[in-house]
Simulated scan of single mutants.
Amino acid sequence: MSKQLKQITENQCQNAPAKYDDLKVLFLNCTLNRTPILSHTEGVIDIAKNIFEANGVQTKVMRPVDCEIPAGLGLDMSQTDEWNRDDWPIIQKEIDETDILVLCTSVWLGEKSSVCNRVLERMYGYTHVLNEKGQYRDYGKVGATLITGNEDGIKHCAMNILFSLSHIGYTIPPQADAGWLGEVGPGPSYLDPGSGGPENDFTNRNTTFLAWNCMHLARMLKDNGGIPAHGNQPEVWDAGCKSDFKNPEHKV
C-alpha cells in the first residue's frame, strides 16, 4: 500500500460510520498461476485486503487453480462416475461462511479466466440448496470483482461476473468492480517494475470505493437479517402461494 493510500485509509477508518470487525471477506483469485507463482491479480487484491483488515474484517485469499475442481453442477462431483476427486466442497464451505465474496480474475482473450468460469459454474450448481429462511442460499451475501490484465476487457468481464453473482442471489453494491490494465499487448504487468500499477490513482480509488461499499452493504444486510424472506421463497411459490397468479398444478 502506497504512503498516500495508507494515509487515506487511516483517515477514513478513524471516521467510519460503523464497526465491521464481525464481517468476513473471501477473495477467490482465479489466476491461472498455482501457488507460489506470482499473481499480478493478487497485487490488486492486496489493496482491498488491506482496507478490509484496517477495519477489522477477517480476510482470506484462495486460488481455486490450486484445487481439483471438476466440471459439472453436482454438489460433490467425486460422488459421480466421472470423477474420483472434487475439492470444490472445500471452497464452497469457505463461501458459505463469508459475508463478502470478491471474485477476482485476469483477462484472457477479452474474457475472464477459465478458472473463474469454472468457479461460477460450480457455484451455480448449489443454487437449488436453500438457506434457513427458504431463499436461495446466497441471499444476504455481498459480491464484487477485481480484474487485471494487459488487454481490454475489465468492464466486459465485470458485467458477466456481477450479473452471475446477482443471478444466484448476491447483492451487488455500487462501484463493485475495479482493476488495472497495462498497455495492450506485450508489456509490464501490474507488479512488474515500472508498470505504474501500484501507484495508479484510478485503480487505487476504485478499489477503495469497492472495499468500503462492500463493507457498508454487508453491514446493512447483517444488521437487518439479510434480504426479507417474503415473495422470494421457491418452495412457497411451488406450493401455490402465488399472489394474483393461477396455479396450473392446482397445488394447495
Rank of each mutant, 00 (worst) to 15 (best):
W212M: 04
K242N: 15
C241L: 14
G240K: 09
G240Y: 02
G231D: 04
N232K: 05
N213C: 07
E235N: 13
C241D: 15
N213G: 08
E235H: 12
P228Q: 09
K242V: 03
W237N: 10
W212N: 09
H216V: 06
G240Q: 12
N232F: 03
Q233P: 00
W212G: 01
N232Y: 06
W237V: 05
K222M: 02
N224E: 07
M215S: 02
R219D: 05
C214A: 13
A229M: 09
R219W: 00
G226F: 11
D223Q: 13
M220V: 06
K222E: 05
H230N: 10
L217Q: 12
L217F: 09
N224D: 06
D238K: 15
V236G: 07
N232R: 09
I227W: 01
N213M: 04
N224P: 00
H216D: 13
D238N: 13
L221P: 03
G240N: 09
P234G: 07
R219Q: 05
K242P: 00
A239V: 05
M220D: 05
M220T: 04
K242T: 15
H230Q: 10
H216C: 01
G226S: 09
W212F: 11
W237Y: 13
G226T: 07
L221N: 04
G231Y: 00
D238Y: 12
G226K: 10
A239D: 14
D238S: 14
N224L: 07
D223V: 05
E235P: 01
N213E: 14
K242F: 05
G240M: 08
A229P: 07
D238T: 08
K222Y: 03
G231I: 02
C214G: 01
A239H: 10
G226W: 12
D223T: 11
P228N: 12
D223C: 11
C214T: 08
K222A: 10
I227E: 04
D238Q: 15
M215Y: 04
Q233N: 03
N213D: 14
N232T: 01
E235G: 02
E235V: 02
C241W: 12
N224F: 02
D223G: 13
C241I: 14
A218F: 01
C241T: 11
